[in-house]
Design a protein around this nucleic acid. Structure first.
Length: 862
RNA sequence: GGGAGCGUGGCGGAAUUGGCAUACGCAGUGGACUUAAAAUCCACCGCCGCGAGGCUUGAGGGUUCGAGUCCCUCCGCUCCUACCA
């Protein structure tokens, strides 16, 4: 017998699989389709442990599903546009293109060395012209559908990356997602995808996604941030305090508190604030607040309880419900980009308004009062404002009874209360307001002022305005002769910029913004189904058979960004396909891309994320060099369930190495070979004291375990508990170790062979090379074909059962004795036997109740 | 402030529907083999106790014949989000 030599085995089989096209898939195969997708890598450096974990999980699922009889689509590619390529190129005096494609080749080699069963013929690289061409095509389709907009807007500007960012790319601390620099607000003309058009559907369809983790759905729902309430119209007064024709609308979730509104607020950047204070004595103070907001750092903004600042504008509005004149203030806690940038302030019902009113000595009239509050007695039924200052130390935001609220007094108030509805109806009848919904979700800002990205296919013409590049002129190719190390940009490249207007033919200027890289990763899973289509981004019929992706696997860090954008793209493409065609001509039928989602945890070292900058990276290559790919893959699956973070510990990897070696020896031993080590020392140890009776007993046990473990591994793999699936295989290996203590002549040959086969088949998805070598070489079953082409073994549950079972006997829930009974013993008999076993403890007391739990325990209650 | 999740041996973790807590592995201890070491094999391995026995899933309470699992209160940790009107 040869020693287990992972390097020789792994390289040999990788070559064989490549030569025989073992992992190629045929799209029209008649077996049922199953699409396994792992988030494709960004080619920023070497493959790391996080990749190994992500792709090992995907590979197990793919190989398992193939053995279950599915035609599995399991592709890989690279998300290769983006800024790190530019930064690295400048640092290394190279070009983004060279750097990117060198890294891709390095990563490709590593992924191949890891033995993942990708169909490499379907590789998609987003910076390849024949991919980004279709990104531009989709952009034009979205434009036709009204999903593209160019407008001036306050945007997030990263001064370090020299580009704008989408809201989703600004971290909680107000930092750039990539370089962590504090982001600034700037007013700029930019391209947007109108994600808000789908706000409701993006929220609503989360209910469909039963195969997604609750956590991710919750995060998306929070991000979309739906609020139900009302728009309320206030009338603006002129400088003398008389009402004008001009109105200003606010959004509120609490129309029931409208009588408690004692002042009115504008965001400091609100254009109205500037207009009504221009040239007045209030102007200076208002400007000060505006500057305060502009200069606020991310850390300051982070604090919700930070001091609120405001200034009076000298102007007033009229409250529509009671015609009361309310002062207009500006304050830094009012956000320009949520609602209308204006707020009705109800200090008794909102903590922020309460703090502001206290600071600036504004009235705080109560309008919603709890029945057990001291104010209730004084105010129940009072319609006019009798008390304008609450005795409370904070606002009351819960439900209660409306007071001091005119004709609405006495109604129940609170969020979505009867009082709210009544006020909304009253306002609507008088055209002073209406029921309304607001979302936190903003449109997706996709412009990037960077070179290494997909060019936006548009032309600026001084006669025609902004004109889309015609479909037949696509692709707009990204020029290769831009030297980023010399500070060159697309905008400075005359050959790229100078074009004729596609509409009028006169000289015009090409758009020089490129698209956010997330546009590239929002549809790559569609291209995989038809990666070389020269006419369309994908074939609609093919896409419909493969979509939605059956199992998507990736990191939780994409819970909002990538997963929300991909959902938006899928919905957009579904609707874009309808243009000029019937329903049957849709580009794709479904609006949701990913049916099941598994978010894998991070790989850490000493509690910290592995990263190059921290210098705490464990390189997969080093581990492969010592133990081989299979051991590394099995280990990373064994350490923890896939959705949990895991702590890297190399000693555990030694354990898996021993486990594989032991199976290797056991398999030879099972086939009757004498196992020796590299120095020819005999390792097989037969226990010659064992008898035929022992052999029968151990044979039964091994047979039982084979059936039990086959069933267990199937259940565990299907719910992604790879760690317990491997533990079960270890148990089978332990039983085999006991069995092969029998001298060869006492063994059951058929059983030995079945045990060895079972080990190879069960390990095939996790340790593909090891299992293949076991199957083809050690077991000599090469003529039956690859282990990966075999059918997943089935088990007979009845054969997994023992003839007798041991039951725990409890007295009042505490285990006091054990009895062994026949599997099919009648309950009366079990009760009697159990009682007899604990008679001494019970001391002849009459049991109140005896509970028998089949196959497990008996509980005697006394 | 809001939301989600977690807490089990020295360590990673198991316990699928409320039914024998600590599977499987790592580390550790003792032994066999060896001149020796490595490898391998065998045995032990939650805590207290010499023992019989008792205790144990962050703490406390509850429901139940029975709770790691369900409910309540508290403590601790992690992640997300945040002046969203």
């Amino acid at each position: 017998m040869l020693q287990y030599d992972p390097h020789a085995i792994e390289e040999k089989w990788q070559q064989v699989w490549e030569d025989t096209g073992a992992n190629l898939m045929h799209i029209d195969d008649e077996r049922p389709p199953y699409y396994v997708l792992e988030m494709f890598p960004y080619p920023s450096g070497d493959v790391h442990m996080g990749h190994v974990r992500n792709y090992s999980i995907g590979d197990v699922i793919s190989r398992y599903k193939r053995m279950q009889g599915y035609n599995v689509l399991h592709p890989i590619g690279w998300d290769s546009f983006g800024m790190p390529a530019e930064n690295a190129a400048i640092k290394e005096n190279s070009s983004p293109h060279t750097w990117t494609y060198q890294n891709i080749e390095r990563q490709r080699a590593s992924l191949k060395r890891l033995g993942f069963s990708y169909d490499w013929s379907r590789t998609v690289i987003t910076s390849d012209v024949d991919y980004y061409h279709w990104g531009q095509w989709i952009f034009l389709k979205f434009w036709e559908l009204g999903l593209v907009e160019r407008r001036s807007s306050p945007v997030n500007w990263c001064p370090d990356c020299n580009t704008v960012l989408a809201n989703e790319q600004v971290l909680g601390e107000g930092d750039c997602w990539r370089c962590k620099t504090s982001v600034e607000k700037r007013e700029l003309e930019q391209w947007f995808f109108k994600t808000t058009n789908y706000a409701e559907e993006l929220l609503e369809d989360l209910n469909e996604l039963t195969g997604w983790p609750e956590r991710v759905k919750q995060m998306q729902a929070n991000w979309i941030g739906k609020s139900i309430g009302a728009d309320v119209v206030f009338t603006l007064c002129d400088e003398t305090g008389e009402p004008t024709d001009e109105t200003i609308t606010v959004f509120t979730t609490r129309p029931d508190t409208l009588f408690g509104c004692s002042f009115f607020l504008l965001a400091p950047e609100h254009p109205l604030a500037e207009r009504i204070t221009k040239g007045t004595s209030y102007e200076a103070e208002v400007l000060k607040i505006k500057q305060l907001v502009e200069s606020a750092t991310a850390i300051e903004r982070e604090k919700a309880d930070r001091e609120k600042n405001g200034a009076f504008t000298g102007c007033y509005v009229i409250n529509p419900v009671n015609n009361e004149k309310l002062p207009i203030w500006v304050s830094d806690y009012v956000l320009m980009d949520y609602g209308t940038g204006a707020v009705m302030a109800v200090p008794s019902g909102d903590q922020r308004d309460f703090e502001f009113a206290q600071k600036y000595a504004l009235p705080i009239p109560p309008v919603i009062v709890r029945k057990d509050d001291e104010l209730y007695e004084q105010l129940a039924g009072v319609t006019e404002c009798k008390i304008s200052q609450v005795p409370w130390s904070e606002a009351y935001v819960g439900p209660g009874i409306m007071v001091q609220s005119g004709e609405f007094t006495g109604l129940p108030g609170g969020k979505d209360s009867e009082g709210s509805t009544a006020v909304i109806n009253w306002l609507a009848e008088r055209a002073l307001g209406k029921a309304s919904v607001n979302y936190r979700l903003r449109d997706w800002l996709i412009s990037r002022q960077r070179y290494w990205g997909n060019p936006i296919p548009a032309v600026h013409c001084s006669f025609c305005g902004i004109v889309p590049v015609p479909y037949e002129d696509l692709p707009v190719e990204l020029p290769m002769n831009i030297d980023v190390t010399a500070g060159e940009t697309l905008a400075g490249n005359a050959a790229f910029c100078e074009v004729d207007c596609p509409a009028c033919g006169k000289p015009a200027r090409r758009e020089t913004d490129t698209m956010d890289t997330f546009t590239c990763s929002s549809w790559y899973f569609l291209r995989y189904t038809d990666p070389h289509n020269p006419e369309l981004p994908f074939n609609s019929k093919t896409v419909d058979t493969w979509l939605p992706v059956d199992q998507y696997i990736g990191g939780i860090e994409h819970a909002i960004l990538h997963l929300l954008y991909s959902r938006f793209f899928t919905k957009g493409l579904r609707d874009a396909g309808l243009l000029g065609g019937a329903d049957a001509n849709r580009l794709l039928q479904r609006g949701e891309p990913f049916k099941n989602l598994l978010t894998q945890g991070m790989v850490k070292l000493n509690g910290e994320t592995m990263s190059k900058s921290k210098g705490n990276v464990v390189a997969p290559e080093d581990m492969i060099a010592r133990y081989g790919t299979d051991a590394l893959r099995v280990y990373i699956l064994f350490m923890a369930p896939p959705d949990k973070d895991l702590e890297w510990n190399q000693e555990g990897l030694e354990g898996i190495w021993r486990f594989l070696n032991r199976i290797w020896r056991s398999a030879s031993d099972l086939l009757g070979e004498l196992v020796v080590d590299s120095e020819n020392n005999v390792l097989s140890i037969y226990d010659t004291s064992l008898t035929t009776a022992d052999a029968t007993e151990r044979g039964k046990e091994l047979n039982r375990d084979i059936h039990r473990v086959i069933g267990k591994v199937k259940d565990d793999v299907e719910r992604f508990n790879f760690n317990t699936a491997i533990a079960a295989i270890m148990e089978l290996a332990n039983t085999v170790s006991t069995y092969i203590k029998l001298p060869v002549e006492l063994r059951n040959k058929e059983l030995c062979l079945r045990a060895a086969e079972t080990l190879a088949l069960l390990l095939a998805p996790m340790a593909p090379h090891f299992a293949e070598e076991l199957w083809c070489t050690v077991l000599g079953k090469a003529e039956q074909g690859s282990v990966h082409k075999q059918t997943w073994p089935t088990h007979d549950p009845s054969q997994a059962l023992t003839e007798t079972v041991e039951l725990a006997v409890q007295v009042n829930g505490k285990v006091k004795a054990r009895i062994t009974v026949a599997l099919d013993a009648p309950e009366d008999e079990i009760k009697a036997e159990a009682y007899a076993a604990v008679a001494a403890i019970v001391e002849a007391a009459e049991p109140k109740k005896i509970i028998v739990v089949g196959g497990k325990l008996v509980n005697i209650v006394v």
